[in-house]
Design a protein around this nucleic acid. Structure first.
Lengths: 156, 156
DNA sequence: GTCTATGCAAAAGGTTTGCATGGAG
DNA sequence: CTCCATGCAAACCTTTTGCATAGAC
């Protein structure tokens, strides 16, 4: 599902404000990366963006991509993606809400859940320890009914 | 709180078995790192272990530390600390109670928390959706007080 | 004695930085 | 016309690897 025009505009506007407020410049490279980023689904790293921007509209240096990704992160359009050991993965932050997953370790099926009670507890933990929450990861890994049944049958 | 002698012995025994089963060798370096690791609280990276082992008993190469940390991870004495942007952090897995992490996206500091209420909610979610829980990941990413202050100061 | 482990240094992979030049405001 | 941004290449950092030698079994 491609991103909505409204989100695109909102993001562009947000970037422009962010830059203006700090006396930074609105450059073709920054706008180009923003467009590409908004059209990218799921998680991506700097290298992927280098490739996409180059494919789409000519040369960009790796350094500029790294610098601009940092900019987009700082202005809240991107966030670093959870669950990635090591590498710098990003995902778009606009228009997404925190959602959690439970998934089956055997068959890989994934279901979503949302528990306001957990969010509340998270807020209290963060407050207690002095953090301002940026995001959270909450995943339950288990065995679904079908896989348990299958495993049980196999054992006999 | 220093680690208990019993845990120390258990870990050593586990490592010996692991090595013996695979025809690998029990070397002074491996035992030394194991001791240091068990005496280290919280989260640590390879570099910290290089420093500690060297301080404690002379020379070790960085390569050996990396190789041995991998070994300790594979035999279940260590685990990689989840979701740490950037560096490879470990924590000891033996003799630890289940706990989750909250960490600062900026400076990387990590703190642990444990909330029985969350565990209970997880169980109810799993029951409702028909899963048997194997494990969970629950992490809060935020900005710690110091980094917020630093960021606020920088913006002015 | 055999075969794995270690140390060293070089390589690798990802990200950042210094500097001269290009371009936004 | 003033600074900031860009491109390029070199620097950086952390982790991995190749190879000769040390050492466990």
């Amino acid at each position: 599902m491609p991103i909505e025009a409204a989100d695109m505009d909102e993001a562009t506007e947000r970037l422009r404000c962010f830059l203006r407020d700090r006396r930074l410049r609105v450059t073709a490279e920054r706008l180009a990366l923003l467009q590409v980023v908004l059209r990218t689904e799921g998680h991506f790293d700097a290298d992927k963006m280098v490739a996409r921007v180059r494919r789409g509209r000519g040369k960009v240096s790796r350094a500029t991509i790294y610098r601009t990704l940092g900019l987009l992160e700082r202005c809240g359009i991107l966030r670093r993606s959870p669950r990635t050991y090591g590498r710098g993965l990003y995902e778009t932050a606009l228009g997404r809400r925190p959602h959690d997953h439970i998934f089956c370790a055997k068959c890989g099926r994934i279901e979503e859940f949302y528990e306001e009670r957990v969010e509340r507890i998270q807020r209290s933990i963060a407050r207690r320890l002095g953090y301002r929450i940026l995001e959270h990861v909450h995943e339950i890994v288990g065995l679904c009914r079908e896989c348990r049944r299958a495993a049980g049958a196999a054992e006999r």
